[in-house]
Design a binder for these strands. Structure first.
Lengths: 139, 139
DNA sequence: TCCTTCACTCTCCTTTGGGTGCCTATAGAA
DNA sequence: TTCTATAGGCACCCAAAGGAGAGTGAAGGA
């Protein structure tokens, strides 16, 4: 995990981005972007695309699992709008649409990967903390 | 960013966690944890605590900005439940409660840092992609 | 001729997110 | 004596998120 911290520090050095005192309008934009992007389905779709490359609509749905068509459509549109994926429509008659990650989508996936690793690493501790919390508060 | 990917691969090797065919109950837990944690307020509160160390209730509220008392209370409780922060109540009469990040909270913040850096690095491109998308779809 | 496939769209419905305002108790300030 | 600050709890409310299920349209197989 130290490597991630180091990499992050390196990126901050390179880009000259420090958290303390970033201009407020940039902060607002960043918050907006984070708000749009840091959602469950976006993360899961990025995961699926990273693992399997170009996918079709129903393939994404199957890989993600438990997502309704509505949310899948909506999330894919949002991601396309934000430039995280590209959408290629083949105008054939059983419709054929392909979704592919863009470069910045790949970068975001890589950035999110740390969170996945965190979740996989610590989910047992989170479970334990929840049980302990319930025991403390429950009585 | 390759360093992150490498670190992740190393962690997966070490822990024996592969995405393809991870036990379904673990997958469910990880998704649940991600779902709980990948929310706007949690991220912003972690940010505030990382930057300023131990904070009181109203301090957190001021630093986060734009959050209602209700959501602040709720989010802090959830984070305490998940073991991301500790809550220390001083039983004095103007109430005094202190919130501090735990170790796994710190790790999560570090993991999320990559996403913040991504947002700061690419938000201009996201803006551009959105404008281009609107121009494409708008007419 | 009917059914199936794909990638949606539309409508209806329930759940959740989140805001506002009112309540607490008491030490100390005005 | 009255007001304020602190960290919430509680009740009510609206809006948005999100799920379920039906519909769509045309090509090609049975």
């Amino acid at each position: 995990m130290g490597a991630i911290r180091a990499a992050v520090a390196a990126m901050q050095e390179r880009g000259g981005l420090q958290h303390p005192e970033v201009p407020p309008e940039v902060d607002a934009l960043v918050r907006d972007v984070i708000g749009q992007i840091a959602d469950k389905w976006t993360m899961l779709i990025l995961e699926a695309l990273e693992e399997h490359g170009t996918l079709r609509f129903t393939q994404v749905g199957r890989l993600v699992g438990g997502i309704s068509q509505k949310m899948l459509t909506k999330t894919l549109r949002q991601m396309e709008c934000d430039g995280l994926i590209t959408r290629k429509v083949h105008p054939v008659i059983p419709p054929h649409v392909e979704y592919t990650m863009t470069e910045i989508g790949g970068e975001l996936t890589a950035a999110f990967c740390g969170v996945w690793v965190w979740a996989e690493t610590y989910h047992a501790q989170v479970e334990a903390a929840r049980r302990a919390f319930k025991a403390r508060e429950g009585r």
